[in-house]
Nucleic acid binder design. Structure first.
Length: 190
DNA sequence: TCTGCGATAATA
DNA sequence: ATTATCGCAGAC
């Protein structure tokens, strides 16, 4: 969350991520071992793992662990920095700025990321895609919650986000990291 | 503003 | 059958 993603004339600060942890994580594409689709996840770190889902959406991850492990971080939301014109062209359905990158498939569409970018190197930017340290320190106390949209592995609180950022895929902090609802769930009522 | 549902096709 | 989602329609 101190990182910036740059791609095809647009950029944004990464404000929301989820971890998918190889063989121990039933929600991870890597859980059942290497296949043609998830091959990039098992490759060297610093590359982009791009997958197609729900018959229409692309989503992107940064591969994070050593070759052969299969751990990656799903990029779930960006705070747009530059290239809002280009992003709006690629996402005509976005009405407001916060509709541009407030979701894993939205940000891919906004930045023009699709299957052709699977396995792109994020460090040397040869493929036109780059993730670099913005110099802005990450939040001292980032928000944390359970991951979104899963039916397996729901108990692991492996979603992190910049608390209060308007570009999150879901507003607010989600639920507390613990296994049970806490007093925080009641705060919404008052 | 909020909720529920349908789209749409690769994957295992 | 399931899916690491999104956007529309309808209720309020």
């Amino acid at each position: 969350m101190n990182k910036v993603l740059v791609c095809r004339g647009a950029s944004g600060r990464i404000v929301e991520v989820e971890a998918y942890v190889g063989a121990v994580d039933p929600a991870s594409h890597a859980y059942r071992g290497k296949t043609q689709r998830n091959e990039t996840m098992f490759g060297p770190p610093g590359h982009l793992y791009v997958y197609f889902t729900y018959g229409m959406h692309w989503c992107a991850n940064a591969v994070c662990d050593e070759e052969g492990v299969g751990t990656a971080v799903l990029l779930r939301a960006l705070a747009p920095i530059d290239g809002c014109e280009a992003m709006r062209r690629r996402r005509p359905k976005a009405r407001r700025p916060i509709d541009l990158c407030s979701g894993p498939a939205k940000l891919c569409q906004a930045l023009g990321i699709a299957g052709q970018d699977d396995c792109a190197d994020l460090v040397d930017s040869e493929g036109g895609i780059q993730i670099f340290d913005s110099g802005t320190p990450p939040p001292t106390s980032p928000g944390q919650s359970r991951r979104i949209g899963l039916s397996k592995g729901v108990e692991w609180p492996w979603r992190w986000f910049v608390e209060g950022d308007p570009n999150l895929s879901r507003q607010g902090s989600g639920e507390a990291a613990g296994s049970h609802p806490t007093a925080s769930s009641a705060s919404k009522i008052t």
